[in-house]
Amino acid sequence: MIRLQNIEKVYRTDTVETLALNKVNLDVAKGEFLSIMGPSGCGKSTLLNIIGLLDEPSKGEIRIDDQKTENLSDKQLAQFRNSKLGFIFQSYHLINDLQVLDNVELPLLYRNTTAKERKQLATEALAKVGLSNRIKHFPTQLSGGQKQRVAIARAIVGRPEIILADEPTGNLDSAMGNEIMDILLQLNKNDGTTIVMVTHDENMAHKTHRLVRLFDGSQVQ
């Protein structure tokens, strides 16, 4: 499903050059639930962003669904992300000016759907994360756990094959964290969604199929 070959990422600033990723090779199978761990600053987010085509590697090749991605135009990239990928961020990144339902509908705006379809799909996604009673709320009126569930609903509403989650439980207490984790596990098991998750929590990591450890930009396990 996802194949990374010899991925390198170098950040250059005026004074220093950081090698954030060094020759990373990774294969993720369809339906797999993979977690990535490692100390802070080792390049986990960088790797996830590259997988999500939000950032380009300095070297190396990414294939998703056996499709090369390096030469895609801005429009094609956008469409690719829209149809295949769903993102969950540590700090939720909901749009505060929009109600929960509109936030969840967002990915559907960028494909051919009618307002009615969007509403229906978004309502279903919200039901899946147990938030049917918060549709008209604004993000600022929700708790951290609820916000993350809205973010999950937004990530799954377009039925992407791959979900990329960067520390989805990082801002939550363990009870909330477990709830979120359960939702992700259900999603993986019931819908066969491929999930790549960055986490700092060993317990969560052990619930997934496979664990990849990064250290200083290199894969150690």
Binding site: K75, A78, I95
Partner: peptide
């Protein structure tokens, strides 16, 4: 943040 999210979920620059 809104711009980042929209782009991540499939908005192209022109959109």
């Amino acid at each position: 943040s809104e711009i980042g999210v929209r782009k991540a979920f499939g908005a192209s620059s022109s959109t």
